Each structure stands twice: as structure tokens, then as C-alpha cells.
Simulated assay, not measured.
Amino acid sequence: MKKLFLVGALALFSAVSAQEFKPTAGDVTVDLGVAGGLGNTTINLPDQGFGTGAMFKARYFKTENIAYRGTLFVGNVSETDNSTPDIKKENNFYGFGLGFGMERHFTGTERLSPYVGGDVLLGYGSMNIKSTEITTGDVEELKGPGVFRFGVRGVFGADYYIAKRVFLGVEAGLGLMYESEGDTTLKRTGDADVVTKGGSSFRITPEVVTGIRVGFAF
């Protein structure tokens, strides 16, 4: 009888200990990833290709296995290039993305929580490149194109809990995106503006989501 009680107690303790690492129903997790890239003007939603920026993700666990997710990406690059004599070049890139979706988590292990899910995505990005000749004051400025994107994406990933309710996460996915690109305007001192018309397209894009993320469960 004592042995049976001891086995039952150990099993219960193990189950409780395992649950301490992972979120349960009603919990919220937040995580942060940092994306790099210099002068990358491609807009891949929601969290890569905007240049240098940061991606935030929050999840609400309706049950231990089902979570609702929201993502936010903000990217901004402002840099000055003086590598060419007598020419000052200013580059400005901006990107903003939002995603809303759901995840289905599987049993995994005590610390590992694999999942699949999906997002609805939208975002906007733009750029501005300005070159100024120091001696003459002549300016060449490229504005646009502004890029708007809307689409859906399926994802798969995993969270590994390195400590109680602290995890590292990785994720990848495949998205179907509609992209609308605005006009590009080239301005030169003394010349008429040159306008290049934009367009729109659909495409399927594989994505790795911001490498490794660090997150916390509350």
C-alpha cells in the first residue's frame, strides 16, 4: 500500500512539475525577435525583409493546446553614406506589419512544445533614397515604391522552455501574398520628375520567422 501511494505521489509530482514549464489555459506569452539586414527593401510579412527591426508576438492560451496569436513588426533604417567623395547619400527604409492567427500545440516533451498554426497578414513598407552633391548642391531623390501586402500563412514551429515559463522559439511557414506596389518617383535638380508606375501580384513565399526568439509566459 505504501509503495502504491509512493508511486502515485511521484507520478502526480512529475505531472505538476511538467506543467510548470509550459503555459496552461488562461496564460499569456510574449516573445521578441530581432531581424537584421542592411538596405533590404523587400517586404516579407510579418517579420522579415523590412531592414533592421523588431518583431513582437503575443499569445493567449484558450486551452493548454489552443492559442490565439497576434504579431507586430516595426522596421526602420535611417543611414547616411559618405563613402563617395563630395556626395552625401541618405537612405531611409520603413516597414510595418500585423498578423492575427491561431496555433495548435502538441504534447512534445516536458520542455518542448511543437505546434502548427496560421495567420492573416497585412503590412506596409516604403523607402526614400536621397543623394546630394556637396559642391554644387544638386540633389537626386528616389521616392518609393510604397508596398502594401495582404495574405495568409501557414506556420510550424516549437518552443523550448529553458527554465520555468521562459522559452526559446523557432518558426517557419509558407505564405500566399497579394502585393500592391505604388509609383516610384525620381527627382533630379533641373530635370523633370520621372515616374515609374507600380503594379500588383500574387506570390507564394517560404519564410523563416526571425530566427530564434526569446519569450516568457505569464
Rank of each mutant, 00 (worst) to 15 (best):
K88I: 07
L186Y: 07
D193C: 06
R188H: 08
V208Y: 10
T42I: 10
G154L: 14
I43Q: 11
V166G: 02
V147L: 05
R149D: 03
E64C: 05
A25H: 09
E133T: 13
G70P: 04
A54F: 12
P46A: 12
T135A: 11
M102C: 09
D193P: 00
L12I: 14
G144F: 04
V209R: 15
Y115N: 14
I134Q: 10
R203S: 12
G118P: 06
G117Q: 09
L72D: 02
G39Y: 05
T185W: 00
G175P: 05
G75F: 08
D159K: 15
F96W: 04
A11I: 13
H105G: 03
E79D: 06
M1E: 08
N65L: 05
F216A: 07
E103S: 15
V7L: 15
T41M: 05
I162Y: 09
I129M: 07
G125S: 08
V16I: 14
G154V: 13
S126W: 03
E207V: 15
G199W: 13
V152L: 13
F202V: 01
V147D: 00
T84K: 10
T80A: 06
K197W: 00
G154P: 06
E133G: 02
E181N: 09
T107L: 11
D183M: 03
T42C: 00
T80F: 06
M127Y: 01
F21V: 12
F13T: 15
E90W: 04
